[in-house]
Structures are given as structure tokens and as C-alpha cells.
Amino acid sequence: MIAISHLDKHFDRLHVLKDISLTVQTGEVLVLCGPSGSGKTTLLRTINGLESIDRGSITVDGKTIDPKTSEIRALRQGIGFVFQQFNLFPHLSVIDNITLAPRKLKGLTREAAEAKAMQLLDRVGLRDKRDVHTDTLSGGQQQRIAIARALAMEPPVLLFDEPTSALDPEMVGEVLAVIRELAQDGMTMLCVTHEMGFARDVASRIIFMAEGAIVEDTTPAQFFTAPESARARAFLQDILGH
């Protein structure tokens, strides 16, 4: 459902993505990992058109992602994005954060959008937070609301950019539990994360990147027990601390 072909991207002189090709089938859960600066977040952002690309192509369900076209808006509705810093809208209540896009972009009535939002709040375990202001929520709660906000557009694909990196350690679990459940429900997902335990349990594929290129594209079992490249071995040693 996602097809990336020979993608290149530069930030000025820096070659951040080098000839990336990758296909993702419906229902797959990809974890993108690698040392910082390896280009995994940039790659994720190109799929939503938040970053432009210099060469190559990205298609989602056969449609080309190009941030310079106006079709990108409609395409983005089908590609949810969850940010490291949550990026909730602080001037809106929790329920309005979730219903704004369905109401304004899909033309849902307030009643219909709120009914749907309440289901999502149930799903992320925050039904009682419906009317509160987002700045009274903990980081873990904010990220769960951000996931509900993305789900409200009913996107076939969800992209997660280090969803737990900005959280205090005790809140990581509650957010991962929500993502885990989505994976079990068959949601197609790409997730940039350093949570290797989560990657091992949830991912159907591990994409290991270094210096802007995909170094390994393999199963979790293979990646964690017998990584092929020296880079992946070094990375795992650093991150797992042994």
C-alpha cells in the first residue's frame, strides 16, 4: 500500500536519504530504528509530505505524495501522523482537538464527530478527559489524545515519529499499550522508536537505517538474534547496553 522508490533527499549539502526503496503491505507494522541522524524521522515525514523529496517517488494506495500539489491535503487525511511532541492544539478542549478535522474536513456534524470521538477516547482510556484543556494532561495522556486525534480521520495508515521519546519513563507503557492494540487490530503502521522491547513484540518488520540508507530490512527475530551488519550489531549493543 506504500511504495517508496529510489528516494533521495538533501538538507542543503547534507545527503539525508540515499536511494531509499521500500514497500509496505496493508496490515504490516514496520519499526524504523537506527542511530540518531540516520534519516528515519525524515523518511517518515516524507511519507506524509511534511518533507519534500529531491528524487524518486512515494505512492500511497497508488497515489503520488507530493507536498507541492493541492491533492496532498486529501491524501494526508488518509495518513495519520503522531508527533514526538504531541502537538495538541492548546486552544481547544480534548474533544475539540479530536473532532475539529472530521467536522471541518469531512463535513461531519458535531454530534456524529463527538460520538466517534467518544469511542476513540474509550479506546485510549481517557473518556473522563473529554472536556478538559490539553495543558492539564500529562505527557502520556497528551500522546494518547494525539493518537485519538489522528484516528478520528480513520486513516488506513498511521505514522509514529518517536511517540514515547518526549515522555517520562513511567508514561511510556501506557502509550505503547495503545499502539500495541492498534497493531493487533490490523492497522498498517510505521513507527520510529528506540523502544526495542516494543519493536521485538509488535513489529512485523524491522527497518534498520544508518547514514541515510536502509541497512537491514528483516524480521524482528532475525534482527535481534542475528543482525547481519556490523552497524546493526553495534547499534543493538549500544541501545541494549550489553
Partner: peptide, 24 residues
């Protein structure tokens, strides 16, 4: 991040300005 969050949901530049940026 406010602009990016709005864009990622599918809002165009004018709607982003009107619903997300200007009120804040």
C-alpha cells in the same frame, strides 16, 4: 509543530491559519 499537526490532518494553509494558528 502546530502548523505541522494541522497539515498532517489534511488542513490546507488557509484553514490551518483560521482554525489553528490565528486563534492562538
Amino acid at each position: 509543530g502546530q502548523t505541522e499537526a494541522a497539515m498532517s490532518l489534511g488542513f490546507g494553509p488557509v484553514q490551518t491559519m483560521r482554525f489553528i494558528i490565528l486563534p492562538q
